[in-house]
């Protein structure tokens, strides 16, 4: 048995060495960040995520929907019910009135986040042919997750900083946006954030890095709102199973004591 395991390990190691690298072309490593929500004890940084919501609301929401979230979900970020009511009420949503006519009314906490465009075609038409994707699960929907979104939002290079070779290789036109991390580099989204794009209600200095970190924290929460419950449950389950394994091991040894 032991020999089988050892041989298996050797085989795996050989494979690991063999798989050194697929010859990758022009692949730029992501900017790895330390996130509050990684690891089995991870939680969301509420203050950061609330600021991130402000960034989403004031900047991203002009183009990106967040259709899987309702305003009421914001209470999970530590906003009060009254605050959430207020946030919802600022938004006008379509509905059908008592007499059956189409009306607009202030949103309620139970409403889903309002979409900026009526449909994907309208969204694409307004954005140079590419519809801005829904951001509800964006952090889970990209290789690299939060690090990728962070790198993307901080990864724009102004066209006048590009080398002629780069301009030629990626066919960067005058009005194109060049992003180091976007596959193919030409992205239909103009750089959404710059220093002082928002002025934070909590007084935090709004550098580009700060804004991006905050909005990624918010989007990570939006993608995986039950992460904290998952971690808590997971730790309990594993502790229980470890204790149970110890017990089972003892019982098993006891039972087998006379047989070997």
């Amino acid at each position: 048995m032991r020999r089988i395991l050892v041989s298996g390990a050797v085989a795996l190691a050989a494979l690991g060495l063999g798989a050194v690298a697929i010859a990758a072309e022009g692949h730029i490593p992501l900017k790895h960040q330390h996130w509050h929500f990684t690891g089995p004890f991870g939680t969301y940084d509420r203050a950061s995520a609330q600021r991130g919501f402000q960034v989403y609301k004031e900047v991203c929401a002009a183009c990106h929907s967040l259709s899987l979230l309702s305003y009421r979900n914001l209470t999970e970020l530590g906003l009060t019910e009254a605050q959430v009511k207020g946030i919802a009420a600022e938004v006008q949503v379509p509905d059908i009135g008592d007499d059956g006519s189409a009306i607009e009314r202030p949103a309620r906490p139970s409403d889903r986040f309002k979409k900026p465009f009526a449909n994907d075609l309208a969204a694409a038409a307004a954005n140079g042919g590419k519809a801005p994707p829904d951001l509800s699960v964006i952090v889970k929907a990209r290789e690299g997750g939060a690090d990728y979104i962070y790198s993307l939002l901080t990864g724009y290079v102004p066209n006048d900083k590009l080398t002629p070779a780069q301009i030629k290789e990626f066919a960067v036109g005058k009005d194109d946006n060049f992003n180091l991390y976007f596959p193919g580099h030409r992205i239909a989204m103009p750089p959404p954030l710059t220093d002082d794009k928002v002025s934070y209600v909590d007084g935090t200095k709004a550098t580009l890095d700060q804004e991006v970190r905050d909005v990624v924290e918010f989007l990570a929460w939006a993608s995986e709102p039950h992460l904290e419950a998952r971690n808590r449950t997971g730790i309990r389950v594993i502790l229980f199973l470890l204790a149970f394994a110890g017990l089972m091991y003892g019982v098993k040894r006891q039972v087998w004591a006379d047989k070997h």
């Binding site: 089995p40 998952r230 971690n231 449950t233 997971g234 730790i235 389950v237 594993i238 199973l241 470890l242 149970f244 394994a245 089972m248 091991y249 019982v251 098993k252 039972v255 087998w256 047989k259």
Partner: peptide, 24 residues
């Protein structure tokens, strides 16, 4: 009880790894 107990132990170890993936 010989193999019920041995299977029980092995299963618990397997479940620990499985739970590690499910939750983390």
């Amino acid at each position: 009880p010989y193999y019920t107990m041995k299977d029980g132990f092995g299963l618990t170890i397997f479940m620990i790894i499985y739970a590690g993936f499910v939750f983390f």
